[in-house]
Structure formats: C-alpha cells, structure tokens
Simulated scan of single mutants.
Amino acid sequence: MRTENSVYVSMTDVENPLSAASPQAFSLDDAEWPTPEHYVLAMQFEDPALRAEIRSALDPQQARKLVKRHKRKIRNDWDSVRRIYMTRAIYTRCLSHPASARALLETGDKRIIESSLYDYYWGRGRDGRGPNTYGEVLMNVREKLRSATAVSSPSFSSQDPNPPG
C-alpha cells in the first residue's frame, strides 16, 4: 500500500542517490569504498583480504556474488551489527557527497520505505511485515543531518565523532 506521505527507495537502484548501490565513493575505516553496499557486504567478514576483494568488486552485484561464495565465513555477530554498519556507510556517504545529503533532507518528514518485495530485513517484503530497516536507517541519518545543519553550516564535517546508529 503506497501513500503520499512515504518515499519509496530501492537499495539496488544505482540511479537513486539514496540507494546503497549508488556509486558515490567515500572513505571509512581507512579504505575507499565505491558504494555503501560494498562496505556493508565487506563488513560481514573479519578477514581483511576478503574485505579488500569485496571492496574492489566492479559493482554491488559482483560484491554480492563474492559474499555468497564465502557465506560460511560470515561473522557470528553479523545479525546484531549489520544495521550499525549500514548507518555508518550511509551517514559517511552523505558527509562526503552533499547531493546525497540534500536528496535525503528533501524527503522532509516523509516515511522512507525500502521497496524490495523479497527482502524481509532491509525492506518490508512482499506482505509488508518486514521491519524496513534500510528505510529506518535513512530516516535516522536524515535526523542526524538535520541536527548537524541546525548546529553548523550546511557543509557537514566528515570528522563527526557521533554518527547515528
């Protein structure tokens, strides 16, 4: 059910600056990441070599294939930390790319919904029962960006010690 008080985003839409797959590079954890999706996929693993391999994948689709190939090596605590890593990636990307921050702020007070029919964690899934975690991450980052602009100028500091999460 779509409403006018909502914004629908696909995490995999490379054309949308709010998507985790949007190719807007940023630096985080002493590395340059091509997309938030690359970062989050890599953080599923503790092995630095595997993280580097995922980071250097040509696109998020190739990075996801690498994850599937190594799924037995996914860190034990992943379910409890994945939202934190996604939040860090999206927030840092917004700090690095003012156009992404602007696009997120322009959603106003609308509810942001990840529109995947198949993802019951990041999205709501086909039946709408999923928690819409990606939408929640975007709305939390939006609030953090609003707080940052209320305190300082519209140019955000990438040295913010308190990313949302």
Rank of each mutant, 00 (worst) to 15 (best):
S96Y: 11
G123R: 05
P60Q: 06
S80I: 11
I54A: 00
M86S: 02
K110R: 15
R102Y: 11
P60R: 06
D79K: 11
R93L: 08
Q61V: 07
P131V: 09
I84S: 02
K110F: 09
D127Y: 15
D109K: 09
Y85E: 00
N76W: 06
Y121D: 05
E106K: 13
Y85R: 08
A52K: 14
S100V: 13
S96D: 05
L50C: 00
C94Y: 05
R72L: 13
R82A: 00
M86L: 08
V137K: 03
G130Q: 06
R69Y: 13
R64W: 14
R75W: 13
Y118K: 15
K71D: 08
K65A: 15
R55A: 11
E136S: 07
D79Y: 04
S80V: 12
S96L: 02
R83V: 14
T92K: 09
K110L: 12
Q61E: 10
I84L: 03
S100F: 04
D119E: 11
R69I: 05
G125F: 06
E136W: 01
L117N: 11
W78P: 06
I84E: 01
M86N: 00
D77A: 07
G128K: 15
R111H: 13
R126E: 12
R83C: 03
G125V: 09
T133N: 00
V67I: 12
S115C: 14
T92C: 01
R82P: 00
A99E: 04
L50N: 01
R64K: 15
S96T: 10
I112N: 06
P131D: 00
R51L: 02
L104H: 04
R111Y: 09
A99K: 01
Y134K: 04
G135W: 13
T87G: 03
E114T: 12
A89W: 06
I54S: 00
L58V: 08
Q62N: 10
R72C: 04
R129Q: 14
Q62V: 14
D59K: 04
R64A: 13
I112Q: 03
I74P: 12
I74Q: 12
E114H: 06
I90M: 13
D119I: 15
E114D: 08
R64H: 08
A103F: 03
R72M: 08
V137I: 15
P98I: 04
R111W: 08
T92G: 00
E53A: 14
S115Q: 09
D59L: 05
D127G: 11
V81C: 04
R75E: 03
S80K: 13
G128T: 11
A99I: 02
E114Q: 12
K65M: 14
A89K: 03
Y91Q: 05
C94S: 10
R83K: 04
K73F: 15
L95M: 08
R69F: 07
S115P: 01
Y134M: 10
S96R: 07
N76M: 05
S80N: 07
S56K: 13
D79P: 01
G128P: 14
L58P: 02
G108R: 11
N132I: 09
D119L: 10
A103E: 10
K65I: 15
Y120D: 01
N76K: 14
W122Y: 13
V81E: 01
I54Y: 09
K65G: 12
R72I: 08
G135H: 08
H97E: 03
R69T: 13
S80Q: 14
H70R: 14
R93M: 07
R93E: 04
